[in-house]
Design a protein around this nucleic acid. Structure first.
Lengths: 336, 336
DNA sequence: GTGAAAGCGCTAACAC
DNA sequence: GTGTTAGCGCTTTCAC
């Protein structure tokens, strides 16, 4: 149960622990070949493993990146995290993944955990447009490298990476129109998520472009979850709103909406089309009947890491705000 | 950028750092009310946050649990992890999540990371039945609390939690038979995953029960991924094997198989039914056309944590092997 | 009730 | 090339 330390190795070999430390470090100059050999051998034999906590304490940096994601129901954020981890591995960084569960107080406590562990940087997909603005700013002022991704936040002097909500949404809604749907309802996101406004703007612009009147009653604010989508869809059907397509804010909403349609035996997409912005390749694969535009997950991870490493290298470097084009791939397996 | 330490607080207040430490600890007896008040106040004001690395080094335990999962494509393991985290939160444990990517060498290096961080316990869903057996045993011998979940391993003196593969598979295959499918093909898992054998056994037993001849050519070994499922399905169709239903080992296989059927314009489930064991509620929701049995995700997380905490409390306690009944819920939205 | 001192495991001057 | 020493930030005896 007890772990082997450099002191143990030093004792066995009858040398000092600094020599052991030197021999074990990557750039072990100033140590004889012979000593290195002996030390490495003994370490191996005794099952020595460097205590990262001690190293980090001594070096005053944790070699750790904290990530906050809003939900764990879709696999989008896990895939993102996995990609980030893969990219960061060679740099020797490890990851602490935390969940805000769409709650900004939880998000705050996650940041406190990061603080306790003296993380070298933070990646965050924010659950609320402004609730934690001041909080974020505290970290930014303390020069803790931070990058927002996917769900970014406006009015903040901080790097960010998001996909092009406006053009993706535009593309998607226009696709519905080309397919012949003209009475398109929009299940909008909550107003505390930044992306909501962009997509709504796209929705209105598409209508205008195609000479369709904008009807405010066709924009229904809803939450982000499956149950939000289901509730909204039930309300829509019950109220007899005249529409034949629904453009959802989230994948989960879309799934909820779809479930309701199925329960009520309404065919998709013949009677009613459902469309959403989707997180992952897999998601678009498993959503027959739901038309979706893919988010560029891998590129998002790459860009996010790039910006983070830049900040870590030079905390004073100017922020960069990247907007990625979506993969304009429409998938809907029942449509072909 | 620099962090406030107890020494800073002590200096400001003109008292010793041991007093500060005592005042800040939960059970601060032997410190005057007055001092506590002053210290807490100043700490707050200065933005003090305890350095967990230092605490852990001093206390010789990391208050950290390591988790290894084999894949991040489905959301099953992320949901599992999220649940575990929620349960472990009140105990003050934090989680390091690592990915083996179905590769046992990566899995090994994940364990080494855990070792470096002196984790208090390990939760693992193994990617290989036996490749790392000796490796696991090393940890077990060193009394590092460990619990296997979902993909467990036989012949190991270690606690584990898995769902009842045999009965779930039996139930699922029998369901296909009741639906009228009798020429059922089995896309088996790889032989290095333990669950494979159990499900195969169930498959054979169901056939026997219903007086259907077991035909070895209907059992096709395949990998675990989507592409494995797709490849297998293509081979099946090309070789003209006579079957009208497929029982898949994984959700991903099933998705791959389904994709192929769709590409070839073969209706599901009219011409050919696909069934699989599924990880999550969401998955069964989004897999129309695929019949699935749910795994009891939340109970699995609860049981796993329970066994782990038991081991942490008493490393010498006997191991426990829990087999959870699956949620015998058949979902297939196009079938109703 | 408080302070002084030792030490968790490691690295990095600084001597020699 | 190697040993000695100090210290990262914290907790915990042990005095007083």
């Amino acid at each position: 149960m007890r772990y082997v330390t450099i002191k143990d190795i030093a004792n066995v070999l009858g040398i000092s622990k600094s020599t052991v430390s030197r021999a074990l470090s990557a750039d072990s100059w100033n140590v004889s070949e012979e000593t290195i050999r002996k030390v490495v051998e003994t370490a191996e034999k005794m099952g020595y493993r460097k205590n990262e906590m001690a190293v980090n304490l001594r070096n005053r940096r944790a070699k750790t990146i904290g990530i906050v994601v809003p939900e764990a129901v879709t696999s989008f954020y896990l895939q993102f995290t996995a990609t980030v981890q893969r990219i960061l591995q060679p740099y020797g960084y490890r990851i602490i993944l935390t969940l805000s569960d769409e709650d900004f107080l939880t998000e705050r406590s996650n940041f406190e955990i990061f603080d306790s562990y003296r993380v070298d940087g933070i990646l965050i997909s924010s659950c609320h447009h402004r609730a934690n603005l001041e909080f974020y700013n505290g970290f930014i002022r303390r020069c803790i490298p931070m990058v927002f991704f996917d769900r970014t936040v406006a009015d903040l002097e901080c790097s960010s990476v998001r996909s092009d909500d406006y053009h993706s949404a535009f593309f998607l809604v226009e696709h519905l129109i080309y397919k012949g749907y003209r009475r398109i309802l929009h299940l909008a996101g909550p107003d505390y998520i930044r992306n909501t406004a962009e997509r709504l703007r796209a929705y209105r612009d598409v209508l205008k472009k195609h000479g369709i009147d904008y009807r405010p009653e066709l924009v229904i604010p809803a939450g982000v979850d499956e149950k939000d989508g289901a509730e909204a869809m039930n309300r829509i059907l019950d109220s007899g709103v005249d529409c034949n397509a629904v453009f959802c804010f989230t994948e989960l909403q879309a799934l909820g909406a779809k479930k309701v349609l199925q329960e009520r035996n309404i065919a998709i997409p013949a009677d009613m089309a459902i469309a959403c912005m989707s997180g992952t390749k897999l998601a678009t694969l498993v959503h027959p009947g739901i038309t979706a535009v893919e988010q560029p997950l891998d590129r998002m991870a790459e860009e996010t890491v790039r910006l983070l490493l830049a900040k870590i290298e030079n905390p004073m470097a100017p922020s960069e705000n990247v907007v990625l084009p979506a993969n304009m791939v429409i998938r809907s397996s029942t449509e072909k």
